[in-house]
């Protein structure tokens, strides 16, 4: 299996503040990869570097075989990203936001979007400003999945979703992954990693540790958080 994501010696700092330090990571095509770590450990910095939101100072990132800097647009054509906050333009209607995301991609995703909205029970007639966090997250899932990308990147996707929607969400991921997609799942929920991920890594204080197995117990998992606060 080829690598969907290849990160080599990634270092990113914010002035004098630490971002991530010398991160090297391979994520194989067709797997769900768990990405754990305390708040501020560097998970989002890594993800935002992959997506080109941040300009990193050292290292290299290849996504789906393309260089993350030179082939930025081509990579994003094949990526579905769901940020942790899921903000959209408040005045727009849900249906318009979903169509807008497809239009920018130059695709007609109406059929897939319709299926996703039905399964996630998305009310497309409402305006974004009328939605709760959970409902905004559902819109974000539709925007990330409607074009059937090769790579999904989810940053804390289940916060705000009710248990039924969480179940539907993971069913959808497993369906797309069974068709060949890859998924990078950043989360604080160990049970999600235990249940769905084939491999996992934990970030702490900007450094990455790849786990031998995603099936770790609560005590080992919490040690990473406790040591962070010491």
């Amino acid at each position: 299996m080829a690598n969907a994501i290849e990160i080599r010696n990634l270092t990113k700092s914010y002035g004098k503040n630490r971002g991530v330090i010398d991160v090297t990571l391979d994520i194989k095509e067709g797997e769900i990869f768990g990405f754990l770590g305390p708040n501020g450990a560097g998970k989002s910095t890594t993800i935002r570097s992959i997506l080109g939101f941040l300009k990193f100072s050292e290292g290299s990132i290849r996504v789906l075989g393309y260089d993350s800097v030179k082939d930025h647009e081509r990579i994003l054509e094949n990526v579905g990203y769901m940020p942790s906050e899921a903000w959209f333009y408040g005045a727009m209607k849900v249906a318009d936001v979903i169509k807008y995301a497809a239009d920018v991609r130059g695709l007609d995703c109406s059929e897939e979007a319709g299926k996703l909205c039905e399964r996630l029970k998305v009310d497309t007639g409402k305006r974004i400003k009328e939605l709760s966090l959970g409902n905004r997250k559902k819109v974000s899932i539709v925007c990330a999945m409607q074009h059937k990308p090769s790579l999904f990147i989810f940053d804390e996707p289940t916060g705000g979703l009710d248990p039924l929607m969480q179940k539907n969400f993971f069913e959808l991921i497993e369906e797309y992954v069974s068709e060949g997609a890859t998924c990078l799942l950043s989360t604080h929920v160990l049970s999600e990693v235990n249940k769905y991920c084939k491999n996992a890594a934990i970030m702490r204080e900007g450094r990455l540790t790849v786990l031998d197995s995603p099936k770790i117990d609560d005590d080992t998992f919490l040690k990473f958080y406790e040591e962070e606060t010491l």
Partner: peptide, 14 residues
């Protein structure tokens, strides 16, 4: 400011 940048710039547009 409105946190919409992550949505917009995750779309394939430079």
């Amino acid at each position: 400011e409105g946190h919409t940048g992550e949505f917009l710039f995750s779309l394939p547009v430079s």
